[in-house]
């Protein structure tokens, strides 16, 4: 099924358009992808460190004001990442390391969702200077580890597992 989907996607007009532009499109998207990861990890990482107990004098809500920049980084990387996958679907669907990256992405996303829905208001109410509860520290730890996992799996993509789906 995956094979059918990959080869269908590979023949769609949008994929063909990307493939024909690959000479300049791919390096440009890669550059944006690396800048985006720095922005995302820089801002989200700062927020996680705050939840872990660093910068205690600053209210959590104030550090959270920077999160739109993390969202900018994430959006840039989602868009450029989709361009990579649409251009060369089999290269990604056939690579187990890509699925590890996707799994880390799902963990990071679910973790952020849990924070927003269940802990967001409680976190905002913690006065400056007070220690954060263990639940928030765990959420911050999961966030740091899963985003790092996304980066590591992404960087290992061309080296680990790339051969597995060569026939796909």
């Amino acid at each position: 099924m995956l094979l059918t989907f990959a080869s269908w996607l590979h023949r769609t007009p949008i994929s063909l358009a990307f493939q024909n532009q690959v000479a300049w499109l791919w390096p440009t998207c890669e550059t944006i992808h690396f800048a985006g990861l720095a922005l995302l990890l820089g801002v989200a990482g700062m927020f996680d460190l705050r939840l872990l107990g660093f910068m205690k004098r600053v209210p959590i809500s104030v550090v959270k004001e920077f999160m739109p920049w993390a969202l900018v980084g994430f959006t840039l990387n989602l868009l450029t990442g989709m361009i990579f996958v649409i251009s060369q679907p089999a290269q990604y669907f056939g690579n187990p390391t890509w699925w590890v990256k996707v799994a880390f992405l799902i963990v990071a996303g679910a973790n952020a969702f849990v924070f927003e829905t269940a802990y967001g208001r409680r976190a905002a109410a913690i006065p400056a200077g007070e220690d954060t509860p263990m639940s928030l520290k765990i959420i911050a730890g999961v966030s740091l580890i899963s985003w790092l996992g996304v980066l590591v799996a992404g960087r290992f993509l061309p080296f680990v597992g790339a051969g597995v789906g060569a026939g796909l």
């Binding site: 720095a38 995302l40 820089g42 004001e65 920049w69 790092l148």
Partner: peptide, 30 residues
Amino acid sequence: LMLHTVGLAMIVGPAWVLDVRLLGYGARLP
């Protein structure tokens, strides 16, 4: 190569946070 990318994020991420703060964004953050 992977560590080179981790290092990139550790340099550029905090640098950009500081830069946008100095340029006026998130002014409530000391």
